[in-house]
């Protein structure tokens, strides 16, 4: 293992994590909801849109958030790793897996771990190992 010092951003990432945590706390304290994006996104389409309007409000906030970030940040340059059918199949697996597994990086990874949920701990271990093996097996630059 070699540490990638060139791209390592501990302070910005810690600050980002604290904001993500704060967002989850606001949603729980005010709306009584777990900030799990796979659940919010899936249920936005499957549940009653009127009683579930808070989901669309949350998703709307997330949709515009990069542009809020750019009000003071200089740039936001995502470097894609997948394209074409790989991207679409990957996206489908992200949705399918997080629905069947009842959560993703936010719901299990942030909220579940903080509630000391055993299910979330197991889910995080499994998807981390699965993702690490996937990246290990994928052809990518050294």
């Amino acid at each position: 293992m070699t540490i990638d010092m060139e791209h390592f951003t501990p302070l910005a990432s810690l600050a980002g994590g604290i904001l993500i945590g704060l967002a989850a706390l606001i949603l729980m304290a005010m709306n009584g909801r777990v900030m799990g994006i796979s659940g919010i996104l899936g249920d936005a389409f499957l549940n009653n849109p009127i009683s579930g309007l808070w989901r669309w409000a949350f998703l709307g906030g997330t949709l515009v958030s990069p542009f809020v970030y750019l009000l003071w940040a200089e740039e936001l340059l995502p470097r894609p790793v997948a394209a074409g059918s790989t991207l679409l199949i990957g996206g489908f697996l992200v949705g399918l897996g997080s629905a069947i597994g009842s959560g993703c990086t936010s719901g299990h990874g942030i909220c579940g771990l903080a509630r000391f949920s055993l299910r979330s701990f197991v889910a995080v271990m499994v998807f981390m190992i699965s993702a690490i093996i996937t990246v290990y097996l994928m052809p990518h630059g050294a």
Binding site: I37, P80, L87, L96, G101, S102, T105, F127, I129
Partner: peptide, 21 residues
């Protein structure tokens, strides 16, 4: 389902570098 779903999610996340949020 928790285990199988998390395995599938991990594959999709590893391939694309993007999770739902």
């Amino acid at each position: 389902p928790l285990i199988i779903g998390s395995v599938l999610f991990g594959i999709g996340w590893g391939v694309t570098g993007l999770c739902p949020g």
